[in-house]
Design a protein around this nucleic acid. Sequence first.
DNA 1: TTGAAAGCGCTAACAA
DNA 2: TTGTTAGCGCTTTCAA
Lengths: 338, 338
Amino acid sequence: MVHKRVGPSKNISIEDVARLAGVSITTVSRVINNSGSVKTRNKTAVLEAVKQLKFKPSVFAQRLASGKSNVIALIIPRYEGIFYSFYALELIRGIGTLCEALKLDLLLHLTDSRSPLNLRGVGGIIFADVIGNLDQIQEAVDSGTPCVVINNYVKDLNVNSISIDNTGGAESAVDYLVSLGHKKIAHITGDIVTQGAAQRFEGYKKSLKKHGIALEEKYIFKTDYSRGQARSAAEKLINMPNPATAVFVASDSMALEVMAVARESGKHIPDDLSIVGFDDNPSGLYGPVALTTVRQPLSQMAQESVKRLNVIISKKEAKVEKIVLPTELVIRESCRKL
Amino acid sequence: MVHKRVGPSKNISIEDVARLAGVSITTVSRVINNSGSVKTRNKTAVLEAVKQLKFKPSVFAQRLASGKSNVIALIIPRYEGIFYSFYALELIRGIGTLCEALKLDLLLHLTDSRSPLNLRGVGGIIFADVIGNLDQIQEAVDSGTPCVVINNYVKDLNVNSISIDNTGGAESAVDYLVSLGHKKIAHITGDIVTQGAAQRFEGYKKSLKKHGIALEEKYIFKTDYSRGQARSAAEKLINMPNPATAVFVASDSMALEVMAVARESGKHIPDDLSIVGFDDNPSGLYGPVALTTVRQPLSQMAQESVKRLNVIISKKEAKVEKIVLPTELVIRESCRKL
DNA sequence: TTGAAAGCGCTAACAA
DNA sequence: TTGTTAGCGCTTTCAA
């Protein structure tokens, strides 16, 4: 026996609305899209019918018919470290919030960087960082889909990119330490496979060089951004003979770990060790000693990427831009004058 | 002169493939969907043509024609605290990864709980927690779209829910403290607007009652889950006359803050204060004293929700289930026998 | 095992 | 200001 479906009440189509409102479907279409001109009388009737029938247009039909899509995809490389960072959440939050406001559908892809993505029908793509997936990006760009890469300055591809001045930020952090009189300045890096970590390391070296301070291998500790590795690095750093008087750490969460280790070893911050982090993670505020850090405009970057994409999609603007956003040193309490 | 477009290469349609392969579009459809039977010869030809033309079917046309959608929406209430939690990321990660594997498109909505969502065309919906958006859920359920609510046991709605045994977890945490001889046990709550925090508080009270320990208002500190509020609470807790000997904290990140405060005040963990957290956030592992905590199967919950939805969507199974996943006390180093 | 043809629900010329 | 009509690119009967 075939009986009426209870749940998925037969889909209401634009035709039902037209019938109820006593107009053509074209008029209904005009009303719901706010395009063309419609007599107030009819408009009201349509709106009334829409409400009464609880009509929601089928986005698939709309997209198929119009050839336009208000879907944007956010591609996050499924790289181990990425999800333990302040970064990912801030990004998703920034992008998600703006998409909501702009009525864009946000498609989230946690990609393993290999599987081909079916990008057809996606209006635009945001690549969150580049980690082994340049090919994917290349392919997306080639397909003509508007793309913007964030958190990575992409040199080799003709694609929009919005990145952060990691080198400059790191440099200013170290400059600051030098200005306080520090000469033995250590660095705990992030995961060097990421451009961000590499550039921060670069900035560190640049500043030392600028000030005529020799780079010392023993003061450099490479990590994968995890708190665990930060802890080991901090332990080595603190217990070595002739230890550094200051350390620039590639992320705030690692810097907090260093602080904790120092405190446990009976060291006092900033008296025994000056620390500068990177991120401006709010967690840095709550400890006993507020963390001096480099603020990076993550949510600005996130929002900028959506706006940029939106412009490209709607205005058909095609000019490729590579934007680098500035960072800002936020001086708090974790460093002292030597 | 009309010349070949370079960028947005004219969209290849199923018709182009059919022509090149020398078959009908129906046959092509059969091949790409692996439905119906097609002679090997033709199949090969189609596959060859697909590859050569780099054909990707239009998902919109597919969905429109078939009436099926492999899109699932993840609705996250845009509530202030939610993004500072271990919770959100774990969820997105779990759901995102599984969707990727199952080839489901994941639509992310950070909702303000008021704007109506156009759910038409979405195959299924996962609501991440319920915070002031019961109406949205009600509407989604009414529309007949398969829904599952996670991290919240929804009593009043006929909807699938997968939640965590917060009460039981909290109870076992406090039971454990009692078993170690503690009688003065404080509790730092999470944001009581969330069901999770309320249930953990419930479990705390239940355990005390069970053991004949009177509930003392002065030992209860309400927070919004933030580290800042955890710090204030910890300061009060530690500096009060006749302080508690143990504290059950509603989240690990807050518990870590309590640990930090204690250490700064010259207290030793667990000698001066026993601490149990909740979450099993990996950060709890890296401190000087590993945090005893309640493990909640977040990623299991996340994955379960996708699987459940997938079953409902494909099998048309409609039975509503309300699952409560167990928690597990993970004993590490932050508590001592009195 | 195949293909013709009728939609899916909408948008966008074009005409009126 | 409105409606007619031809698709958008696919899936799915139905017949062959």
